[in-house]
C-alpha cells in the first residue's frame, strides 16, 4: 500500500471502502502523535486528541476537495485540536509567551544540567519535548512530517517568516543547550 497516494485512498473511502481509512491512520498516526505529545506534554492526552482528530478528519473527508495536500489539511486539524485542548486547560499563557515577538531566551528557560551524560539523539529528543508549544510543533512538522515552511505557516496560521524564525531559534537554542551540557564533542 506504500505506492498508493493519499488522494487515491481518500477517493476509495469516499466510495464506501471505509476500511481503507486504516491505511491513512497508519501513515500519519506516529508523526501526528509526536507533534501532539510535544504540544500537550502528555502521551495519554495526546493519544485521546489524536483519535478525535482522525474521527474529525473522517467525518470531514467529503469536504476535503484536494486543493491542498491531505497532510497539510490533517495537521491543521491536529494543530487546532491541540490548541483547543490547551486553551481548555488554561495553558495558553505558555503559547502567548512563546510568540516570535517575545525576547525570551530558550536556552536559559531550559537550562538544566543532567547528572549523567545521555545519548546525544535521546538528549536532543528530550530537549525538543521541553520546547514551548509553538517551537516544538514547528520542529515536529519540519523534521518529522517534512512539511515546508509554507505548509507549516498554513497549518499554524502564521507567516512563513515567523515559521523560519521559530525554526532557527529552536535550532540555536538546542545548540546552546548542547554546549552548556558538554555535548560539543558529540556534536562535532
Amino acid at each position: 500500500m506504500k505506492g498508493v497516494s493519499d488522494q487515491e485512498i481518500i477517493e476509495s473511502v469516499k466510495k464506501g471502502n471505509h476500511s481503507d481509512y486504516a491505511i491513512l491512520i497508519d501513515r500519519y498516526k506516529n508523526k501526528a502523535f509526536s507533534m501532539l505529545t510535544r504540544m500537550l506534554k502528555n502521551r495519554m492526552e495526546a493519544e485521546e486528541v489524536l483519535q478525535d482528530c482522525f474521527l474529525k478528519a473522517f467525518k470531514g473527508l467529503n469536504n476535503f476537495k484536494g486543493d491542498s495536500k491531505f497532510s497539510t489539511w490533517f495537521y491543521k486539524i491536529v494543530y487546532n485540536s491541540a490548541l483547543s485542548r490547551l486553551s481548555v486547560q488554561k495553558r495558553k499563557t505558555e503559547m502567548e509567551m512563546s510568540s516570535v515577538q517575545d525576547h525570551f531566551n530558550l536556552a536559559s528557560e531550559y537550562d538544566y544540567n543532567l547528572t549523567e551524560q545521555k545519548d546525544l539523539s535521546l538528549y536532543i529528543k528530550e530537549m525538543v519535548d521541553k520546547l514551548p508549544t509553538n517551537y516544538a510543533s514547528v520542529i515536529s512538522m519540519f523534521y518529522l512530517e517534512n512539511l515546508s515552511c509554507e505548509e507549516i505557516g498554513d497549518v499554524m496560521g502564521t507567516s512563513v517568516n515567523n515559521v523560519k524564525v521559530m525554526l532557527h531559534r529552536s535550532r540555536s537554542a538546542l545548540k546552546d543547550i548542547m554546549i552548556k551540557n558538554n555535548y560539543s564533542e558529540e556534536l562535532l
Binding site: 536532543i124 529528543k125 556534536l187
Partner: peptide, 18 residues
C-alpha cells in the same frame, strides 16, 4: 558545525509511537 549537527540530529529524530 554545531548548528549543522543539531540540524542533522533533528532529521534523524524518531517519531513517537502510539
Amino acid at each position: 558545525r554545531m548548528l549543522l549537527s543539531v540540524h542533522n540530529e533533528l532529521k534523524k529524530m524518531p517519531a513517537e509511537e502510539v
